Lab assay of single mutants.
Amino acid sequence: KDKDLLKGLDQEQANEVIAVLQMHNIEANKIDSGKLGYSITVAEPDFTAAVYWIK
C-alpha cells in the first residue's frame, strides 16, 4: 500500500522530489490532482527513508 509523502506541489517540485528519491532507489509515484497540485506517494516500507531524503 502506498502512503502520501507530499501534497500540493507544482510540477517542478514534484519532479525534483521524484528525482531525489530515485537516486536513493526509492520508487515514488507522482499523481496529478488538478487544481490541488501534484502528490507524491511511496510504498509504506519506503516511507521513513523517503522522509529522510527529502529533508
Rank of each mutant, 00 (worst) to 15 (best):
H24A: 06
I31S: 04
I40F: 02
I26V: 04
A49C: 15
A28S: 06
E44W: 10
G8Q: 04
A50R: 00
I31E: 04
Q13W: 07
Q11P: 09
H24M: 05
N15W: 07
E27P: 13
L6F: 10
L5V: 09
Y38M: 04
I40R: 00
M23F: 11
E27H: 15
D4Y: 15
G8N: 09
N29F: 11
G37P: 01
D10H: 06
A19P: 00
P45H: 15
S33E: 15
K7R: 12
Q13C: 15
I40L: 03
S39A: 09
H24K: 04
I40A: 01
G8H: 08
E16K: 13
K3I: 13
D10P: 05
L9E: 01
V42K: 00
I54N: 00
Y52P: 01
D32V: 06
Q22F: 11
P45Q: 14
E16D: 09
D32M: 10
D46P: 01
S33G: 15
K7F: 11
V17G: 00
A43R: 11
A43K: 13
Q13H: 09
A14N: 00
A50H: 02
Y52W: 07
W53P: 03
K55Q: 13
G34E: 04
G37A: 03
V20Y: 15
Y52Q: 11
P45A: 15
D10M: 06
A14H: 03
I40N: 00
L6K: 03
L36M: 12
I54L: 12
E27Q: 14
S33C: 15
N15E: 09
K30Q: 06
I31G: 02
A43D: 05
G37M: 06
Q22N: 09
S33Q: 14
I18S: 01
G37D: 03
Y38C: 06
D32K: 09
K55L: 13
D2H: 15
H24N: 05
W53A: 09
E16P: 01
G8T: 04
V42A: 01
K3G: 04
D2W: 15
G34R: 03
I40P: 00
E27L: 13
K30V: 14
L9G: 02
E12D: 12
L5K: 01
V17N: 01
P45E: 15
A28F: 10
L36V: 06
L9P: 00
I18V: 07
I26E: 01
K55M: 13
A49S: 10
K30E: 03
M23V: 07
D10L: 07
K7Y: 13
L21N: 02
A19N: 09
L21A: 00
K3F: 08
N25L: 06
V51W: 13
D46E: 05
L21W: 01
I54P: 03
L21R: 00
N15L: 09
G34D: 04
A28H: 04
S33F: 14
N25G: 15
V51A: 10
W53E: 02
E16A: 14
K30Y: 07
I18Q: 03
Y38S: 01
I40K: 01
G37R: 06
G8D: 04
Q13E: 10
N15V: 06
T48N: 13
G37F: 05
N15D: 14
Q22P: 00
K55V: 12
Q22K: 14
M23P: 02
L5T: 01
E16G: 08
A28V: 05
A49N: 10
I54W: 07
E27A: 13
V42Q: 00
L6V: 09
L21H: 01
H24R: 05
E12H: 11
K1T: 10
E27W: 13
I54R: 01
A49Q: 08
I26C: 05
G8Y: 09
A43H: 08
T48M: 13
A19L: 11
G37W: 05
G34K: 04
I54K: 00
V42N: 02
I18G: 00
V42F: 02
Y38E: 00
Q22D: 05
S33H: 15
V20K: 08
Q13V: 07
K3S: 05
K1D: 08
K55I: 13
D32I: 06
L21P: 00
A50P: 02
L9H: 01
I31H: 09
G34Y: 04
A19E: 08
N29I: 12
N29E: 06
N25M: 07
A50L: 04
T41C: 11
K3P: 05
D2N: 12
S39G: 06
A50Q: 02
L36Y: 12
K55W: 12
L9V: 04
S39H: 06
I40C: 03
Q11A: 13
K35G: 10
Y52G: 07
E16C: 15
L6P: 01
K55R: 09
Y52L: 06
A49I: 08
L5W: 03
Y38W: 15
Y38N: 02
I54E: 03
L9W: 02
E16M: 13
Y52H: 12
N25S: 08
A14V: 04
A43I: 03
Q13S: 10
D10I: 05
I40W: 02
H24V: 04
E16V: 11
H24I: 05
A28K: 00
E44K: 05
I26W: 02
L21D: 01
A14K: 01
E16H: 14
D4Q: 15
Q13R: 11
K35P: 14
Y52T: 05
A49H: 06
G34H: 04
K30A: 12
K1M: 10
S39E: 05
F47Q: 02
Y52V: 05
A50Y: 03
G8M: 05
I54Q: 02
N15K: 06
P45M: 14
V51G: 05
D32E: 07
T41A: 05
V20W: 15
A19F: 12
E16N: 12
P45F: 13
G37T: 07
L9K: 02
V51N: 09
I31Q: 05
M23A: 12
A28M: 03
V51R: 08
I31W: 09
T48D: 15
G8S: 04
D32R: 09
I26D: 00
K55P: 06
S39T: 15
L5H: 01
A43E: 05
I40M: 00
P45I: 14
E16Y: 15
V42T: 01
K55E: 13
K1P: 09
K7C: 15
S33T: 11
V17R: 00
A19Q: 09
N25A: 07
K7A: 09
D10G: 08
N29L: 10
Y52S: 06
T41Y: 10
V17C: 08
K1Y: 10
K3T: 08
D46F: 09
E27C: 14
A19H: 09
K55T: 14
I54S: 04
M23W: 07
N25I: 05
H24D: 01
K30P: 03
E27G: 09
D4K: 12
E44N: 05
I31Y: 07
L6Y: 06
L6A: 06
Q22T: 08
F47S: 01
F47A: 02
K30C: 13
A28E: 00
N25R: 06
K7S: 12
S33V: 11
A28G: 05
K3Y: 09
V42S: 02
I54M: 05
A28T: 04
S33D: 14
M23I: 07
V17F: 10
K7V: 12
Y38P: 00
D10A: 07
F47M: 04
L36E: 12
Q22W: 10
I18L: 10
Q11W: 13
V20H: 15
E27F: 13
H24Q: 06
D32T: 06
G37I: 05
L6S: 03
A19T: 07
A50C: 05
G37Q: 05
K55C: 15
A14I: 04
L5C: 07
W53K: 00
N29Y: 11
W53L: 09
S39F: 11
D46L: 08
E16F: 15
S33K: 15
I40S: 00
